[in-house]
């Protein structure tokens, strides 16, 4: 009896505590009560990735300018969570949805639910199998093509390259590998010495590069990494081995650290993906659709190669 009573008291206390926490959080996030132009639900791939944080910030900025209220949620790379978030947007009766898909197939049901509910849905940055009302983003293959073409040009069409893949099986990894291969096929003088994943991770990329230096040493002429984190890892490993002046490193994303390294003449090239352009355009497109105005089904935001020559435009 007394044990049951204790358990009861404890669970009441726990529920009370969590309610208190929730109301505290809710109050702190609600600042003004002006009626918004439109309410847009946003489900993002992962708010612990720097690039997605940049998209999210530019969305909030543009929404502020347009008087749009955003409900931003983080799917933490989980497609199932993303579908649930979109379902709850529909239940809340939002005017439009912006989806930054976790997976091509796994996030498709989210798009289907929005279509069924008649709410316009805009995909930003990556694709789903089911077509959304509009797509805002870039074609990932192009980023790898730009970086690889830079390498080919710097090597004068002859030399050995190693490629660091992203997390195997993710859309960005597949497309960046595909873009790089297209350039390699067009340039038979360039040989792909080895390719391996470092899972987008700088520490893993350092270890992989150190191991490659042991296996191939002087034979490597250039490194292409699917993202800047890995590119920076390869760069640091090469610098520590005293090989950087002989080996070209190029990667994709133009994160702050990589831009710094390009301006210092350490990293040879990165590829700029316009997170600000993607975020702002996504909000604009979603607002247009919510008002029933037409828009392009695909708003394409191009990549740009960043080297020492044009770095000033990006900093």
């Amino acid at each position: 009896m007394s044990i049951r009573f204790q358990v009861g008291v404890k669970s009441v206390a726990a529920v009370g505590l969590s309610l208190l926490l929730l109301t505290g959080l809710a109050c702190s996030s609600k600042e003004e009560a002006k009626p918004a132009e439109a309410v847009i639900g946003v489900s993002l791939l992962n708010l612990s990735s720097e690039f997605i944080v940049m998209i999210s910030e530019s969305m909030e900025q543009r929404a502020g300018e347009l008087g749009v209220e955003l409900i931003i949620t983080d799917a933490q790379r989980n497609a199932e969570k993303q579908v649930q978030q979109v379902e709850s947007f529909i239940a809340q009766g939002v005017d439009a949805i912006i989806l930054n898909p976790c997976e091509v197939e796994g996030s498709s049901p989210a798009v289907a639910r929005a279509h069924e509910a008649g709410i316009p849905i805009v995909n930003v940055n990556s694709e789903t199998r089911i077509e959304p009302s509009a797509f805002v983003g870039s074609h990932d293959e192009e980023s790898a093509r730009l970086a690889m073409e830079f390498i080919v040009q710097r090597l004068g069409g002859n030399g050995n390259v190693v490629m660091m893949h992203g997390y195997m099986g993710q859309a960005a990894q597949i497309k960046r590998a595909q873009g790089a291969r297209e350039v390699l096929e067009a340039n038979p003088g360039i040989r792909l010495l080895s390719e391996q994943t470092a899972e987008w991770d700088r520490a893993k990329a350092m270890a992989l590069m150190e191991n490659w230096i042991q296996s191939y040493g002087d034979q490597i002429n250039a490194v292409f990494a699917h993202n800047d984190e890995m590119g920076m890892g390869a760069l640091i490993a090469l610098e520590q081995a005293g090989l950087k002046d002989r080996i070209i490193v190029a990667s994709v994303d133009a994160i702050a650290d990589a831009l710094g390294a390009v301006s210092e003449g350490r990293l040879d090239a990165t590829v700029f993906q316009d997170s600000v352009g993607q975020g702002r355009t996504a909000v604009e497109t979603a607002l247009k659709l919510s008002r029933g105005e037409g828009c392009e089904p695909e708003v394409y935001i191009p990549f740009q190669l960043v080297t020492l020559e044009n770095i000033d435009q990006f900093r």
Partner: peptide
């Protein structure tokens, strides 16, 4: 193990 498999160029799968 990590180092050896990389040196032998074993596929990441």
């Amino acid at each position: 193990l990590n180092n050896g498999l990389d040196l032998m160029n074993v596929s990441s799968y």
